[in-house]
Design a protein around this nucleic acid. Structure first.
Lengths: 151, 151
DNA sequence: GATTGACCTTACCATCATGGGAACCCCCAT
DNA sequence: ATGGGGGTTCCCATGATGGTAAGGTCAATC
């Protein structure tokens, strides 16, 4: 099975299949005489595993660990669970970060008339020089740790 | 005021100040004879604006639009509000995507014994070949549009 | 006057996972 | 032999950020 077939069967793009091979996430696959990569059903299975793990937001590094456990007959489910729990915590952190932004914005939007006049609490907030906190949403610990968050 | 002072005063790293200049988000600033960038209080204000907008998760492109409105005396608050609403929707979409991952993972983790034995529903799910959906979380439309989500 | 150290400059590389495209090779059918 | 639909490698781009190296500048201290 060539890479095009493997891509369709696994749902992973050809581009990414080659990338996963190049970074060692999957082993270098057999080549036929013309240099084409040749995939066995087992390889497709592996690729689909990766696709599903990516779909759940696992990083390549985490997937590497998961695949090692997958192959390991003597694994303990505790190890797998630990990785999953870490990822859940990562997702939770990210969600909270985004939700905090959203909350602030919702508040500002609610305060903004949204008409033809230039007066705008959103702009005011962004251009504010360390004003006193608003009374409507008091002392809410919204975990601002990074000044420049990666979004 | 040199870039170091400007960085401290605005909370934007020197690196990012130069970057913002290079991409045209802020105008090329005055240079003193030795080639050092020189910042006026107004520039600091602009940088702080950018920092706060980034903190709310606005993209550089959106910030460009927000800053144009900020400078525009004849702006309508509706224009600002529109940008903010778009961003709120983006945040919402992202949050839902992550929450869907989290929900699935929570379910799998709850099903996993997490002991010394290798049997693991998490691994089983990842390596599954298009099984029937679980009954515990039925037919939930969790918006899976991208096969390989950017997380 | 010379050295030190804090500051500034540009330029390049790395991140993370992914897509796009060019230039080229291979195979099969018309 | 020509065309088309595979495949291959290599380079570049994304977005926003950090790191580092090699060098210029300045003020203070020895």
């Amino acid at each position: 099975m060539n890479i095009g077939q493997a891509s369709k069967a696994s749902g992973v793009t050809q581009k990414m299949i080659r990338y996963y091979e190049s970074i060692g996430l999957i082993k270098d696959v057999e080549r036929s005489e013309n240099g084409y990569r040749t995939y066995a059903p087992n390889d497709i299975h592996t690729l689909a595993f990766i696709r599903r793990a990516r779909h759940l937001g696992f990083s390549i590094e985490q997937i590497q660990a998961l695949m090692a456990l997958w192959r390991d007959e003597a694994r303990s489910s505790a190890e797998v669970k630990a990785i999953a729990k870490i990822h859940i915590a990562e997702l939770q952190a990210k969600i909270e970060e985004l939700a905090a932004m959203q909350r602030t914005l919702e508040h500002l939007v609610a305060c903004c008339a949204g008409d033809d006049r230039p007066d705008c609490p959103i702009i005011d907030d962004l251009s504010a020089k360390a004003e006193a906190p608003a009374k409507a949403t008091p002392a809410r610990s919204n975990g601002r740790h990074r000044a420049q968050p990666r979004v």
